[in-house]
Amino acid sequence: MGVDVIVVRVIRKGTSPKGRRLEVADSFPDVRDVFATVCRESRLPMLRRVDPYGSLVLTSGEMSQFLAELTETSTLVRDDPARNAVEQVRALAERCAAEADLELHLEGD
């Protein structure tokens, strides 16, 4: 029931949605369900939207709130695996925030 976090580059040819292609740029596999647990226990709105059974796609425009919530969460988590997972996801979110053609896909099992 983990939530894998995937940075996806959106490649568009023209203005048609048919020309949209996705290319994986980076990822964090939530093998031990650590990030999923952090999201489930969070009281922050964007992290609460993460579904361990579904998908959530965040654009670079949504990264400022997501990054703020990850920063707050990293100060609250008590154990090293959770803090490490949050920091790895935060690094991916920072990359997504810096490049407008990137999306962050949060994929549940």
Rank of each mutant, 00 (worst) to 15 (best):
L58W: 03
L56C: 08
L67D: 02
N84L: 12
R83E: 06
R40Q: 14
R78Q: 10
D109I: 14
A97R: 06
T75Y: 14
V89S: 06
F66C: 12
E103S: 04
D101V: 05
Q65Y: 01
R83A: 09
A85K: 04
R48M: 12
D79W: 01
L92K: 01
L102K: 01
P45G: 13
A100Y: 01
L92I: 03
E99T: 13
R49K: 15
L58A: 14
T37K: 10
E103H: 07
T59L: 06
R40G: 00
A97D: 11
E69S: 13
Q88H: 13
S64Y: 01
D109L: 15
A36C: 09
N84G: 07
E41I: 01
F66L: 13
L104F: 08
T59H: 04
M46V: 14
E69A: 11
V57L: 09
V77D: 00
L106M: 14
H105S: 10
Q88G: 07
L106G: 11
P45V: 08
S64P: 00
L47F: 05
Q88L: 12
G54H: 09
S42D: 05
M63W: 02
G108S: 11
A93K: 01
V77P: 03
P45D: 10
V77E: 02
S42Q: 08
E103R: 03
A85E: 05
H105R: 12
E72P: 00
L76E: 06
G61L: 08
P52N: 04
E107G: 02
Q88V: 00
L92C: 05
Y53E: 12
L76C: 09
T73F: 05
E103F: 00
S60L: 00
L47R: 09
T73R: 06
D79R: 13
S60Y: 04
H105V: 14
V50D: 09
R78V: 11
A82I: 03
A68I: 01
E107C: 10
L58E: 12
N84R: 15
R95L: 15
S55M: 09
D109H: 15
V50K: 12
V50Y: 06
L47W: 05
L70A: 11
P45C: 10
R49F: 01
T59G: 15
V57E: 04
P45S: 13
L92H: 02
G54W: 07
E94H: 02
R95T: 15
R83N: 05
R90N: 12
L92N: 02
S74G: 00
Q88A: 13
L106N: 03
T75I: 01
R49Y: 00
M63V: 07
S42M: 10
E94C: 08
E41M: 15
L56E: 02
A91I: 00
T73N: 03
S74Q: 13
Q65E: 11
N84E: 15
T73K: 02
R49L: 11
L47N: 09
A91N: 10
L102Q: 02
E107K: 14
E94M: 10
G108F: 12
L44M: 14
A97V: 01
L58S: 14
E103Y: 00
L56K: 08
R83Q: 10
P81M: 12
L106Y: 06
A82N: 01
